[in-house]
């Protein structure tokens, strides 16, 4: 699953490469959109991510990390911006292929989840993740992988980081919905970029 970034850090030519065809995606699988232009680095997503998982995690162990970056890809111009780095729930997850314990699955919603009881803490997933997203518990040694707030989705709610984001910079949604959001954003003058995470590293396509 590609990750979508909206950011004015990019040049005009780069922004013309926006192609999003909802038909090309499985209508039942969710897509994650990060609007880096809107992110102000407040870390509300981190707080709410931890709050949702507070029963099983220690303080500060979150599945989303807000970064302050100069560039989001090597093609971009330099400017200070923020980026909440989280699992992109890839269409063809490399971590799933490589996990020696077979602990990673992709469910019918497209959420890439880890069976924590199967995780042996070898961190091999972190070596192949194109987003360098995987982090691990200080004491448990087990992965702090985003589970797409599975318990919230059961109640028909989107993940906490998305719904509680103070700037509405994070979206989870099905392809048609995402297409609508991106259309609105483009009409509002935002530059939107597709970051291909199926290759090593992050490049605009």
């Amino acid at each position: 699953m590609p990750l979508f970034i909206s950011s004015s850090c990019l040049s005009k030519e780069e922004s013309s490469s926006l192609i999003f065809d909802p038909e090309a995606f499985d209508p039942d699988k969710i897509i994650v959109v990060i609007d880096a232009d809107r992110c102000i680095g407040c870390k509300a997503c981190e707080v709410h991510c931890w709050n949702e998982h507070r029963d099983v995690r220690e303080v500060g162990e979150t599945s989303i990390h807000v970064m302050q970056v100069e560039k989001l890809s090597k093609d971009m111009k330099e400017a200070v911006c923020y980026y909440p780095n989280t699992c992109a729930h890839c269409e063809d997850p490399k971590c799933l292929d490589i996990c020696p314990a077979g602990a990673i699955t992709k469910d019918e919603n497209g959420v890439v989840a880890v069976y924590e009881e199967k995780c042996i803490g070898c961190q091999t997933c972190s070596t192949v993740c194109p987003n360098y997203f995987y982090t691990f518990g200080r004491n448990s040694g087990r992965t702090l992988k985003c589970d797409g707030c599975f318990h919230r989705q059961e109640q028909g709610l989107w993940p906490a980081c998305a719904t509680k984001c103070s700037m509405k910079a994070i979206y989870f949604g099905y392809p048609d919905e995402i297409a609508r959001i991106l259309k609105e954003k483009k009409a509002g003058g935002d530059n939107i970029y597709i970051v291909d995470n199926t290759t090593e590293g992050r490049e605009t396509i």
Binding site: H65, K71, K74
Partner: peptide, 16 residues
């Protein structure tokens, strides 16, 4: 501090 890696160092990695 893990944040130094997941934030500063990772930003360096992305922009290269």
């Amino acid at each position: 501090v893990p944040d130094v890696w997941t934030n500063t160092a990772l930003a360096k990695l992305w922009s290269n």
